[in-house]
Structure formats: structure tokens, C-alpha cells
């Protein structure tokens, strides 16, 4: 087998050099800010990808909890960012120290794990506002840079976490957008990549509240929110996934809430596509949370037709956010 070892070694060398180059460039740049710890993850007007919300909320908490004794938490998906902080704080008692511990596309599993993580740290969960979203009932956990769960508060492995980001960086559309943005200093969006917009302003590191300025920018620059989406008046009833998949998470959440004697509200968020929980799931939620469950889908139904009140079919503007908080605390 003359030359067999030479073939193996040469092939390895030819493949290894580009791989090392690419990994090296990724490590040097750290485009998603996942490799190193940063004082803050948002710099106004910085043209970087929006960092993973799941990671930012946890890492920022670890930093800030050394200064502030947090005891009030807003848990849920990106929709939680649509609930204005100042309005929520106005309903909280004076001893409350609020924090937005949310993540993108957060499922009940993610909420349960975050609460378990707080519990394991020995932090008090005196007040809680939990946002559940029928659109976030999925068969699979999301695996992309914007939505992958943070390993520290999930069962995602660190290997999978880092591999997702490096793969995301070298996705053909992303790397083209990123390079274009870095060369020109302006957002260059190739095809589906739309997250290389200027970072949002108004971020409050203490509460981790970030107003939906990203959605606002997108709405104004790329037309989302000004373009209409097809009306769906008949609505979509999701399969009973909550009962099938998430009932154990629901048990974990209620157990932690009970042990911490938490003053909490659970909100069912509205959406303009009229997606709703399956009646079986709704019944389970009612049986679990009783009067603390606030179903906003019915009362806010009329507002779902006014598209000026929405950034997209799932993210609403502050007007609706304030109404939801009012409903939760005045009911």
C-alpha cells in the first residue's frame, strides 16, 4: 500500500488548514459574543449580530446579581420584551428588584429550567410574571444562533452550543452579510439574514429590559410592521402539545412557585395570527394556575386586527403591552 499514509496525511493537512483558519478567525472575532465574557452585550449603533437573548439574560444576571438582590422575574419568550419595564415596575411593591430572565422562543421547558436554576442558586423568587405563548409549543427545541438555549440553563451541551454558533457564522448568507456590513459600515442583508442591524438603544442592564427597538428598526427599515400580513380570522388551534410534552415542566414550575411562596401571574400572550392553545391545554393551565392565569387572547381580540399596533404577528407594540400588564394586575 505504497503512499497510503502519505495520502491520509496530505488529505488531513489539506482539510485541516482551512478548518484551523476558519476556527481561528471565528475565535478572534467572536461575532456572537459567546466565547468571552463582556461587560455589556449591547452597544448602541454597533453593527454586530444581536446576541443570543438566552445567554445575555443569564450572563448579565450573574454579573448584576452581585450588586442587586433580584427577587422579581419576568419569564417567557421574546414577547416578554414587549411588556414595558416601567409599567410592570409600577405594579410591583417597593421591595421588588425586577429582572427580565427571558429568552427567544422560550418554551415551558426553558421557563422551568430557568426557575430551577434560580432556585438552585438560592435566589428568592418573590414575584413572577410568566408569559406563555401558544406559538411556542414546538415538537423540537430550536437550534440556531438566535434561539438555541443556553447550556447553563438547559440540557444543550456546550459542544452543541459552540458548534451551532460557528456553523451559524459560516452560513453562506450570514458570512456574506457580515462581511458586507464590516466592509461598508452599513447593514448589508443577504436574503434571510436580517439581524445585522444597529444594536437597539434604551437597554437597561439592571433589569435586562430591552425595548423592542430592534423590531422598531426592522419595521421602519425593512417594512415589516408596515406591510400587512394575511388576516387569519378563523384562527389556528395548536395540537395539545402542552399536555403531551410539557406537563412535567408545568409541575416543576408550580412546585418552585409554591416553595418560594411567589406572588405570580401567568399571561397567555395574544398573537395576530390567532393561534390558540388546544382546549385540553387551556383546561390544564386553568386547573394549574386558577385565577392567576390571565388569558388575554379573548379581551384583546379586537386589537389584533389593527396591524399598526404590532411589529409582526407575534410582537406587539407597548400600547398592547401596557394593557396586558393592566389586565394581569388589576384583575
Amino acid at each position: 500500500m505504497e503512499g497510503f499514509s502519505r495520502f491520509i496525511l496530505r488529505s488531513l493537512f489539506i482539510v485541516a488548514v482551512p478548518v484551523v483558519l476558519l476556527v481561528g478567525a471565528y475565535v478572534a472575532v467572536d461575532p456572537f459574543k459567546v466565547l468571552r465574557h463582556y461587560d455589556t452585550y449591547y452597544h448602541y449603533q454597533e453593527l454586530d449580530p444581536i446576541p443570543n437573548l438566552a445567554m445575555v439574560s443569564v450572563r448579565n444576571y450573574e454579573q448584576q446579581s452581585k450588586i442587586h438582590n433580584y427577587n422579581a422575574f419576568l419569564l417567557g419568550s421574546s414577547i416578554a420584551q414587549c411588556l414595558p419595564a416601567d409599567h410592570w415596575i409600577s405594579y410591583l411593591p417597593l421591595d421588588a428588584e425586577p429582572y427580565y430572565l427571558n429568552s427567544n422562543q422560550s418554551t415551558l421547558t426553558s421557563i422551568a429550567r430557568r426557575m430551577a436554576w434560580l432556585d438552585a442558586r438560592g435566589d428568592s423568587i418573590k414575584y413572577a410574571l410568566i408569559v406563555v405563548d401558544p406559538a411556542e409549543l414546538n415538537d423540537h427545541e430550536p437550534y440556531d444562533p438566535a434561539h438555541i438555549a443556553y447550556p447553563e440553563v438547559s440540557d444543550v451541551s456546550w459542544l452543541k452550543w459552540h458548534f451551532t454558533f460557528i456553523k451559524g457564522f459560516y452560513h453562506r448568507d450570514f458570512i456574506a452579510s457580515w462581511l458586507g456590513t464590516k466592509i461598508t459600515g452599513q447593514p448589508v442583508n443577504i436574503r434571510t439574514i436580517k439581524n445585522l442591524e444597529p444594536n437597539p438603544h434604551g437597554y437597561d442592564q439592571r433589569t435586562n429590559y430591552m425595548p423592542c427597538t430592534f423590531e422598531e428598526i426592522q419595521a421602519t427599515t425593512s417594512g415589516i410592521g408596515h406591510l400587512s400580513w394575511p388576516a387569519n380570522n378563523e384562527g389556528v388551534v395548536r395540537p395539545p402539545l402542552l399536555t403531551q410534552r410539557y406537563s412535567s415542566d408545568l409541575d416543576r414550575i408550580t412546585d418552585i412557585l409554591r416553595r418560594h411562596n411567589t406572588d405570580y401571574r401567568v399571561i397567555i400572550a395574544p398573537n395576530a395570527h390567532h393561534q390558540s392553545f388546544h382546549p385540553v391545554d387551556l383546561q390544564l393551565l386553568r386547573a394549574t394556575f386558577g385565577s392567576r392565569l390571565i388569558d388575554t387572547t379573548g379581551p384583546l381580540d379586537s386589537l389584533t386586527h389593527d396591524q399598526s399596533l404590532w411589529y409582526d404577528p407575534y410582537h406587539f407594540r407597548p400600547e398592547i403591552g401596557c394593557m396586558i400588564i393592566d389586565m394581569a394586575y388589576l384583575q
Binding site: G180, I183, T184, Q186, I190, R191
Partner: peptide, 17 residues
């Protein structure tokens, strides 16, 4: 285009790659 920072041109080049 690169020197004059023509965003649209760069985006177009990248799209046409």
C-alpha cells in the same frame, strides 16, 4: 465600490457570488 463604500454594490456583489 469598496473604497467608496458603496453598500448596495457590495451587497449586490455578495448576492451574485
Amino acid at each position: 465600490c469598496t473604497i467608496f463604500n458603496t453598500t448596495a454594490a457590495i451587497a449586490a456583489i455578495l448576492r451574485w457570488l
